[in-house]
């Protein structure tokens, strides 16, 4: 898979863009925080909740795939592990805000289990390893925990949708901030170098194994958090359902729609994805996986930079026109 980051070339417009993106983001977050104050519409809150989960998952995949160039085909494994650990600990009586980071850490440890043997090998071994892990976990969990997991009655009685909404929002914002800080870190240079050319990166002093492990650990930590938030919100679900491949491929699709290897891509992709999916589920319920499949292929072939890239190109085109006309 050839991943091309969509970055803005003109330094001045880059600075202006980052600034306006941050102001817009701060405004959006403030707006989002206020939403439960003026609506209790469960559908709206649940939809936004899903968007937050998908932002987190997609950014998690993006850290590893978009920046470090290591393609996980089994991100559902880390999401599912996070969900499982959270459910067991939280229903077991632990405070949710303690159980959640533990779920993330366990997911990260699982990433090391796949990464340590496969990252030493060249080629697609890590991708295949993650795919295998997700499937193995799904089948195992389906056998070991075949029945629906339902919240205890007193948990259901105490259930507060607005609280779930805020937790999901907080995790998405934390993931975004972490990604932003990572992008400005020295490690990011090593990851980008590895994505571009492993041999040249090594010749420039980048240690491949450690960098790949760090990327997969951080990425899986956030995937685990996303899973934890999901299982914190679901009243009842089959424990194996959080390991199904859609929890891998929807985030990948979102990253590509928005823009792989960019900070804001997963946000734009998640909003776009959920909006379209909700429409399709109503109008063409059985066709929406096919439509997303076709969309994915089109984006990869025609717009590898995703919506972010289309946006910046449009902006540059309009700037040129303005310069011409003035």
């Amino acid at each position: 898979m050839n991943i091309q980051p969509a970055e803005i070339k003109n330094p001045k417009s880059k600075i202006r863009n980052t600034l306006s993106v941050w102001i817009a983001l701060a405004g959006i977050v403030a707006g989002l925080v206020s939403i439960p104050q003026w609506t209790t519409n469960a559908n709206a809150l649940n939809l936004l909740f899903l968007i937050f989960i998908f932002i987190t998952m997609s950014q998690s995949w993006n850290i590893l795939g978009g920046f470090a160039g290591q393609i996980s085909l089994g991100h559902a494994a880390f999401f599912g592990i996070g969900a499982l650990v959270m459910r067991v600990l939280w229903i077991g009586g632990m405070e949710f805000f303690i159980a959640m980071p533990i779920a993330g850490v366990v997911a990260a440890l699982c990433a090391f289990v796949v990464g340590i043997p496969t990252f030493r090998l060249r080629g697609a071994y890590f991708s295949i390893g993650t795919l295998a892990l997700a499937e193995a976990l799904r089948l195992t969990i389906a056998n070991v925990l075949p029945t629906v997991s339902t919240m205890p009655a007193r948990y259901i009685a105490a259930f507060d949708l607005a609280q779930r909404y805020y937790v999901a929002l907080a995790i998405a914002v934390i993931t975004m901030l972490a990604t932003y800080l990572l992008m400005r870190s020295r490690w990011m240079l090593g990851w980008l170098a590895i994505r571009e050319d492993e041999e040249a990166a090594q010749a420039t002093g980048v240690q491949l194994l450690w960098h790949k492990l760090a990327a997969s650990g951080i990425s899986s930590f956030f995937a685990g958090l996303a899973g934890a938030v999901f299982s914190f919100q679901q009243v009842s679900y089959y424990p194996s359902s959080v390991f199904v491949a859609t929890w891998t491929f929807d985030p990948v699709l979102i990253a590509f729609i928005g823009g792989v290897g960019t900070l804001i891509g997963p946000v734009i992709g998640a909003i776009f994805f959920i909006a379209i999916r909700e429409q399709l589920v109503i109008t063409l319920p059985s066709l929406h996986p096919i439509i997303f499949g076709i969309m994915f292929i089109l984006i990869v072939l025609v717009f590898p930079g995703g919506l972010v890239d289309i946006g910046t190109r449009l902006q540059q085109w309009m700037q040129k026109r303005r310069v011409k006309s003035s």
Binding site: Q4, P5, L192, T204, V206
Partner: peptide, 27 residues
């Protein structure tokens, strides 16, 4: 020739500053 094609010139060279014999303390 194998530069890092999708990285800026600055990032290309900064990789060497961060990971080489001398380690730059910050980006």
């Amino acid at each position: 020739v194998r530069p890092f094609h999708h990285l800026s010139l600055l990032d290309n060279v900064a990789v060497g500053c961060v990971y080489g014999r001398q380690t730059a303390r910050s980006r």
